[in-house]
């Protein structure tokens, strides 16, 4: 591989038409995309793929069920960022699955949002979910409603909704900033079941500390696939695992090479290590 790379990067190739300094990025991209595609296609052919249980997601349906029994509403917060954050899109996909459940159970669903574009996309998502389970009669566009773009104005309104409506289940799925703990603590004070999921590393500890279940990072993106039980979506999760295997393999090889260099000082292994590192070089 390293030989291949050095041949590629040293040869007089035309840099004007392709950024050859990013060839390593391209190779890794193709590798990951192929892995994911392979499993998506394999799943489409009807191969059943087993995926481990994710505790937080098992709890989602239970929480919706409990809200229905108690005659209380379900609150869904798709994060506090706009549609240009992929976490928001992941949150909306989960909203789709949650909305199917609330439609089936006839539970009340409340989705306050703080971005107009998220509102538009959220309304489409919920409407389609209610249609899909044959309950378009229960759908109301006001289920997804806009509050304000201001982060803390939105938080103030959410706190108000929580203490006044007292939802039995609160879902926080998407990109969260400082509001994470304000929401989780308020939800805790009203005794709601809380399931959170975010890929914001700084906010994860707050959700872990104050919510009943938390989807950590990657699990947020897997949630929609898992909840929908769509075979092709599940296939993509297998593809992600290949990515993780690649990462682990690279770390093992890389640190072993580095260790050998540190112990023996061998110049041959040293050049091998440098070539290996170039695979992971960044050229912005």
């Amino acid at each position: 591989m390293s030989l291949f790379l050095s041949v590629l990067t040293l040869s007089p190739l035309n840099y004007e038409y392709f950024a050859f300094d990013k060839i390593n990025l391209f190779v890794i991209l193709i590798l990951l995309v192929t892995a994911i595609l392979f499993f998506v296609l394999k799943a489409r052919r009807g191969k059943t793929l087993s995926i481990r249980k994710i505790a937080g997601l098992e709890a989602v349906e239970e929480a919706v069920g409990r809200a229905t029994e108690m005659g209380k509403s379900v609150l869904f917060v798709p994060g506090s960022r706009d549609l240009d954050d992929l976490q928001t899109l992941a949150g909306l996909s989960i909203l789709g699955s949650v909305a199917r459940m609330t439609a089936q159970y006839e539970a009340r669903l409340d989705v306050p949002v703080n971005r107009s574009l998220v509102m538009a996309a959220g309304q489409e998502t919920v409407k389609e979910a209610y249609l899909a389970v044959g309950r378009p009669d229960l759908y109301r566009p006001e289920m997804v409603h806009y509050i304000t773009d201001e982060q803390f104005g939105y938080v103030a309104a959410l706190e108000g909704i929580m203490v006044r409506e007292r939802p039995a289940a609160c879902f926080y799925m998407g990109a969260f900033l400082a509001e994470s703990l304000i929401l989780a603590e308020t939800g805790n004070s009203i005794g709601a079941i809380q399931v959170a999921g975010t890929a914001m590393p700084v906010q994860l500890p707050f959700f872990v500390a104050a919510c009943d279940y938390t989807l950590i990072g990657e699990e947020l993106f897997a949630a929609a696939a898992y909840l929908s039980q769509d075979r092709r979506m599940m296939g993509s999760l297998k593809g992600q695992d290949v990515g993780k295997a690649v990462a682990m393999f690279a770390i093992v090889i890389g640190s072993l090479l580095a260790t050998i260099v540190a112990l023996t000082g061998s110049s041959f292994v040293g050049s091998l290590f440098r070539a290996f590192i170039r695979l992971f070089a960044l050229n912005y």
């Binding site: 899109l89 890929a199 990657e218 993106f221 993509s236």
Partner: peptide, 21 residues
């Protein structure tokens, strides 16, 4: 993990596997 989740989720969107919204 997040990077892999994002790559796979983006790909699902681009390929139209994921389209509820």
């Amino acid at each position: 993990g997040i990077a892999l989740g994002i790559i796979s989720n983006s790909l699902r969107l681009i390929l139209g596997v994921e389209r509820s919204y």
